[in-house]
Design a protein around this nucleic acid. Structure first.
Lengths: 212, 212
DNA sequence: GTCTATATACAGATAGAC
DNA sequence: GTCTATCTGTATATAGAC
C-alpha cells in the first residue's frame, strides 16, 4: 500500500532529539510517575520544545508506552548479561542470587516497578509486557538452570523446576523487596549478601539432594 | 492555652458527612490512585459540596493521609480476625496460608498496595506506617506462632522465627502476588489452595523437624 | 457547617511561521 | 522537524452568602 521505504536509511528511531526525549521521559516517568510527569517537563528536560515532542509521539500515553517498551528490552538484555555473569561462578546459586538481588533492588529497577504497578489499571498491556520481559523471563531462565542442576544430581529430582524457581525467587525477595518497593533504604552489598545466603540455605534444605 | 474542651461531646470524627467523605475518598483513591482522584469527584461521590470537603480536611494530601491511616487500622483489625480464624484450625500452617493469601489477593488489598507503592516517594511516612501495620505486623504475628511450633517440636529449633516467617511469606507470595499486583487475574480459591499447598510443603522441608 | 460561584494555575494538545 | 504562542479543559483551593 505505502511506497517502497528507503532501504535502511535514517529511521525515526535514530533521531538525536527523539533519543533525548526518550531519555528525559524515562528519567521523569520513573522519578515522578505517570501523572507526576508533564509534557512540559519532558520537553524542558530534553532541551526541545513541546511541539517537537508531539511531532515524535502522538501523545503522552504513546510516549509512556514507548519508554516502558524500551525498558522491557533493556531489562531482557540485562538479564542475559546477569545470566552469563552468574552461571559461570563456582558457588552458582549464591552468586546468582546476589547478582539478581542487586539488580532488583537498585533504584532504577524499583522505580520502573513502581511506575508500572501504579499504571497497570490504565495500561494493562504494558503491565503484561513488563511481567513477561522481567520476572517471567527470569523465572524461565532460572528454571532451565535448576533443571540442569537436577540432572547433575545437585538438586533433588521429581519436582517442577518452574515451581522451584518460583520458590527460590520468593525466598530471595521476601520482606526486603517489599520494604524497598515501599521506599525504604536500599540495603548495601553486605546486607544483600546475608539475605541471599539465608535464602539459598533454606532453598537447599527444601530442594537440595535428599541425602544432604 | 485553649479553653476547656467539652467532655467527650460531638467530635469531628463522628460527623456523618465526614464519614461519607472518607468513604468516597477511600473508594476513589484505591480505584483511581492519588493523581487520578480529584476533589470534585470525592465531593460528588460523597454527595456534598467541595467546600465541605475543605471544611473537614485542609487539602487533598490531608484527606489522603487520613484515609490511608484509617486503612492501616482496618488492616490491623483484619489481621487479628485472620489470626483467630487460622490459629484454631487443625492443619494450621496450610489454613493460615490460605486465609492470608485470600486476604492479600482480594482486589481491595491489591488496590491499597498499588496506591501506597505509587505514592511512597511523595508520602514516605504513610508508606512506613502502612508497612508497619500490614506486612511487618503480620510477620511478627507469624513469627510468634512459629516460635510456639518450634517449642512444641513441630518445627526444627535453632533458627530465627522471624527469618522463618519471612521465608514462609516469600514462598506464599511468589509469582502469584507479583502477577496480581501488576493487574493480572485474581486466582480463585482452588488455585490459591494449590499455591499454598506447594509453598507449605517446601517450607516444611526447609523448616520442619529434622527427622521428617 | 454547608452551599454556589469563582480565582488561579497548569495540564495536554495544536496552529502556524520558518 | 522545530519553534513560539495559544486554545481548551480541568485541577486545587477559596470567597462570601446562609
Amino acid at each position: 500500500m505505502s511506497p517502497a521505504v528507503p532501504p535502511c536509511s535514517s529511521q525515526p528511531e535514530e533521531s538525536p532529539k527523539r533519543t533525548a526525549i526518550l531519555g528525559a521521559g524515562a528519567l521523569l516517568f520513573m522519578r515522578e510517575g505517570y501523572d507526576g510527569t508533564s509534557m512540559d517537563a519532558v520537553a524542558k528536560e530534553a532541551g526541545v520544545s513541546k511541539a517537537t515532542v508531539y511531532a515524535h509521539f502522538t501523545g503522552k500515553d504513546s510516549l509512556f508506552a514507548a519508554i516502558v517498551g524500551e525498558r522491557c528490552a533493556a531489562i531482557a538484555a540485562e538479564a542475559e548479561a546477569m545470566a552469563a555473569q552468574a552461571a559461570s561462578a563456582d558457588d552458582a546459586l549464591r552468586e546468582m542470587g546476589r547478582v539478581w538481588m542487586r539488580f532488583l533492588l537498585q533504584p532504577e529497577s524499583l522505580a520502573i516497578h513502581r511506575t508500572v504497578i501504579a499504571a497497570c489499571t490504565r495500561f494493562p498491556d504494558l503491565a503484561t509486557a513488563f511481567y513477561e520481559a522481567g520476572p517471567e523471563r527470569g523465572r524461565r531462565w532460572l528454571a532451565g538452570h535448576l533443571a540442569e542442576e537436577q540432572r547433575a544430581g545437585r538438586l533433588r529430582g521429581g519436582v517442577d523446576p518452574f515451581l522451584a524457581a518460583d520458590h527460590m525467587m520468593g525466598l530471595l525477595r521476601g520482606e526486603t523487596y517489599l520494604r524497598c518497593i515501599l521506599g525504604g533504604p536500599t540495603p548495601d552489598a553486605a546486607a544483600i549478601g546475608a539475605v541471599v545466603d539465608r535464602a539459598v540455605a533454606a532453598f537447599l534444605r527444601a530442594y537440595g539432594p535428599p541425602g544432604a
